[in-house]
Amino acid sequence: MLHTRQSPNSSRIRFRLLADRSAKIMFGAAALFGIVIMGILLVRITSEGLSWLSLDFLTGRFSTTPERAGIMGAVLGTFWLLAVVVPVTMLVGIGSAVYLELYSKNGKIRTFIQTNIGNLAGVPSIVFGILGLTVFVRALGFGSVVLAGGLTLSLLILPIVIVSAQEALRSVPHQLGDASYALGASKWQTIQSVILPVALPSILTGAILALSRAIGETAPLVVLGIPALLIPFPGGILDRFTVLPMQIYYWTLDAALVADYAHLAAAASIVLLISLFLLNGSAIYLRNKYTIKA
């Protein structure tokens, strides 16, 4: 019986197996696409920039002579920028997430704030640049300094920080909070000694990923009027500054005038990429090492 039935079906089976194999190949190709593009990018910038990468390049000042140009000013600029962005996003970001997840009742205000955060996350970064220019650079009169840039980038990444911190808080098992409340702990005692410590690794992971986005941003800084010119090293948050992506942007623009600028741009890209990889790596490390399984 089975043998007589097999012949009409066997061609269908062959077709199904073929479809199965080609599906695997298709999906594999899709997954490979990203890696291939990444590979091309890496090969291109390393072949152009690696030989220009040196200690002098890392510690040197900006110069119009390609052989003498360095990126120390931009690195310091990024450092001071983070000195503004990190505290602002951590305080405001974790604060909003704690309020939304642990204090606000499920009501209209909560929905309203939540929807707005969702909308803000979708606003293009250049629009944040215009906001920063209007409010921080002009209305508050900071000028194109670290503080203005840092606050603008903080606004840009805050929605991401808030949403990821909310998810981190939500994933803390409610039994832990209950145990604390049942011992007579107040809400704040429970939050600070049970909920936040458990959620912190995930909160930090999300925040670091958001920070790496802030470090790589260019568009809002262009709008704020951040230069990549011969400026002194920034020594504080009220100084004028530039950052690596801006430096790369101007070098790439001017590569038409001075051919060697292309190499400088590639070398600076390598530095930027390495720092982003390090940041993302530390986020993954934090997540794996400190996440508490309850």
Binding site: P173, Q175, L176, A179, A182, L183, G184, A185, V198
Partner: peptide, 28 residues
């Protein structure tokens, strides 16, 4: 709740040391 303690269905120790679990209430 400091007079009326509670033990739950599923054991729910804090992700802390044994000592800190017990000392949590008195510290509060």
């Amino acid at each position: 709740r400091s007079e009326v303690g509670m033990v739950f269905q599923k054991p729910n120790p804090f992700p802390k040391s044994i000592y800190d679990n017990v000392a949590y209430g008195p510290k509060l």
